[in-house]
Design a protein around this nucleic acid. Structure first.
Lengths: 297, 297
DNA sequence: GGGAGTCATAGCCCCAGGGTATGACCCGGT
DNA sequence: ACCGGGTCATACCCTGGGGCTATGACTCCC
C-alpha cells in the first residue's frame, strides 16, 4: 500500500534521465530490478506512471504529477537524513552547531542541506538544546556556532539576527474569529482562554511579553508541553492558540488552520546566530552563517 | 540506509501514544514487530530515538526532532497517496475534479486531504489537464468542478478566484541581482536573457503579458518544457528565471534561490475554480470549493 | 541486416520483517 | 508479600519482496 522511498527515487530518476536503465545505474542496481520495482510501484498506486517505448521512457500525464509529489517527499526525507546525520556526529565534527528546538526542527535541515551542496565533504555536528543551554555550550567552547531564540545574548558572545519568527493566533476555519470582519484586539485576545505552551518556553514568554500591558488576562484553556501537542489540540477543536508561524506554515497554506490578525501587539521573535568572542567567523562556521542569513521572501 | 515510511509512521505513533504496544496495535502489527522495527530504525539512523521505560516510551531529545521531521515526510507522503488515489478513481467518483498542472501539483493534494478529514467516505476523482481542456471537460459535464489558471472563463461557466499565484524572478544567491540595492526594473528584466517555459504555457503567457509594454525584449536564454526543468537550470547556474511562487516556495524558504523584486510589473496570476451553469454549487463540490477558498496567510 | 539501444521475463537466492511464544521487569492493589 | 496488569525485549520460524544473472523481444539507425 505505502510506496517505499527507493521506488520514488527511482521514479524521479527515470523522469530526469529518460531511461529506466540509466536510472538503475544511477541507483546502483541492475536494470531488471529497476524494471520490476517500477512495475510494482505502478501496481501499488494503481496508475501507469511511465510510457515505455523502445527508445526510452517518458512520464505519462499522471506520472508527471506523481513525480512532482514524489520530489517533495524526497526533499523532506533528505532533510531528515542530513539532520539525523548531523545529530549523530554531534561530538566530533569539523563544524559543531547547537540550535534551539524551533531552529533545529524547521530551519536547520534546510541550511545543512544547502551547506552540503557547496561543501559535500564537510562533517557537521548538531546538538539540540534550549536557548540557555546553547549559550552555555558556546561559552564552554563545545560548539562553534549556535542558534537561539532568546531576545538577548550575553556580551561575551557575538550574534546576528538570522530570521524573524512571528507567532500567530490560529483557529479552526469554523471558529467565529476566522470569519470576523472586525479584527480581534489585544484585550480580547488576552481575555480569551487559549491553548498555550507551558511557562518557561520561548513561545509562552514571547506571548506573555506581548500581552504584558493588558491587565485582564484569562486563565489558559490548556497548557501543553510541546508545539505539536498545542497544534493537535487546536485541530481537535480545543480552541484558539498562539503558535510559531514556522510550526503551522503548512496548516495555514492548506487552510487547515486560519490565522487571526491581532493589530497592535508585537508577536515577533528574532532568531539569532551566536558565536564565541568578538572575533570574526571564519571557515565552515562562516559559510553556514552565510547560508542562514541569505535573503528570503 | 534510507528508512522506510512505515517505521517513520511507527515513530510518530509512539510519540503520540506514549507506548510502543499501542502504536503497534494502531498500525495493525504485533508488539514485537514494532519493537524490532523501531530498533532497526534507530540502528539505521544511528540515534537513540525513544526512552523505553517499564511504563511507556517517551522520545529522547534527538527523537523529538527526528519525529518532527518524520511528520513532515509523512505529510507529503499522505498528499501523494490521496492524490494518487484521486487520479486512480478519475472516472467513477462521487466528485469529479479536473485541475491544471499547477493546481494539481501544489494545491490539490492539500485540499483533497483536508476534504477527506471531514468526509472520509467521499470518493474524489482527479484529472489533470491544461486549462483549456479543463474547461472542455466542464462543458461536456465530465467533471463537476475544475481549477484553471487562465485569465478568463467562458460565460456559460460560473467561476471564482480561489488563489493568487505570483510569478517571481529568481536567481542563485551568488548572482549580482541577489545583492543589489537598486531594484531591477521592467526594462532591465526584459533586456536580460532568461530561462523560461515554452510559448503557450501559462507561465510564459503571464510573463509575456506583463512585459508587453516593454519594447526591447531579449531572446530567451533557454526554453524548457516543464517547471522543474526550468528550476533545475537556474539551480545549475544557467541564469535568472521567472517561475511560479508555488513551485519555488521551498527553494526560497531555504535560501537556495533568491527572489528579485521587479517593481512596476504585474506578475500575478489568478487561479480560479469553475463549474457548469449559473446554478449554485451543492454537495461535495461545494465543500471542496469551500476548502479551496478558505482564508490563508 | 547487424549493432546499439530500449525494456520485460524467468529463475534463483537471500534477508528484512512479519507472527507467536515467552521472559524480564515495574508498579499498584489487595 | 504477592499477584495481575502493564511495559518492552529476545528467540525462533516462515514468507515474500526485491536483488542478481541470463536471455528474449523489439526499434531505430547506420
Amino acid at each position: 500500500m505505502t510506496p517505499d522511498l527507493d521506488s520514488l527515487r527511482l521514479l524521479v530518476l527515470v523522469a530526469e534521465l529518460g531511461s529506466l536503465g540509466r536510472a538503475a545505474e544511477e541507483l546502483g542496481i541492475a536494470q531488471p530490478s529497476a524494471s520490476k520495482r517500477l512495475a510494482t510501484l505502478e501496481r501499488r498506486l494503481g496508475l501507469a506512471l511511465v510510457d515505455r517505448t523502445r527508445r526510452g521512457s517518458t512520464l505519462t500525464e499522471p506520472g508527471q504529477v506523481v513525480t512532482d509529489w514524489a520530489r517533495r517527499v524526497l526533499h523532506e526525507v533528505d532533510g531528515l537524513l542530513t539532520g539525523a546525520q548531523a545529530l549523530r556526529e554531534r561530538q566530533d565534527a569539523q563544524l559543531r552547531v547547537a540550535a534551539s528546538l524551533t531552529v533545529a526542527e524547521h530551519l536547520a535541515p534546510g541550511w545543512l542541506g544547502e551547506l552540503r551542496r557547496s561543501r559535500p565533504e564537510l562533517h557537521v555536528g548538531l546538538r539540540v538544546a534550549n536557548s540557555d543551554a546553547v549559550l552555555d555550550l558556546l561559552r564552554r567552547g563545545e560548539v562553534d556556532l549556535g542558534f537561539v531564540e532568546s531576545p538577548t545574548v550575553p556580551r561575551e558572545l557575538a550574534s546576528r539576527v538570522v530570521a524573524v519568527d512571528r507567532l500567530v493566533v490560529v483557529v479552526l476555519p469554523e471558529h467565529p474569529w476566522a470569519r470576523r470582519r472586525r479584527p480581534v484586539d489585544a484585550g480580547e485576545l488576552a481575555a480569551t482562554p487559549l491553548v498555550v505552551r507551558e511557562p518557561g518556553s520561548g513561545t509562552r514568554e514571547t506571548l506573555d511579553r506581548a500581552l504584558r500591558r493588558v491587565t485582564a488576562r484569562a486563565e489558559p484553556l490548556l497548557e501543553l508541553g510541546s508545539t505539536t501537542a498545542v497544534r493537535g489540540a487546536v485541530i481537535a477543536g480545543a480552541g484558539p492558540a498562539v503558535l510559531s508561524e514556522l510550526a503551522v506554515a503548512t496548516d495555514l497554506a492548506e487552510g487547515r488552520l486560519v490565522p487571526v490578525e491581532v493589530p497592535g501587539i508585537d508577536l515577533r521573535r528574532r532568531l539569532r546566530a551566536a558565536w564565541p568572542g568578538g572575533r570574526r567567523l571564519v571557515g565552515p562556521a562562516a559559510e553556514l552563517l552565510a547560508v542562514a542569513t541569505r535573503p528570503r521572501r
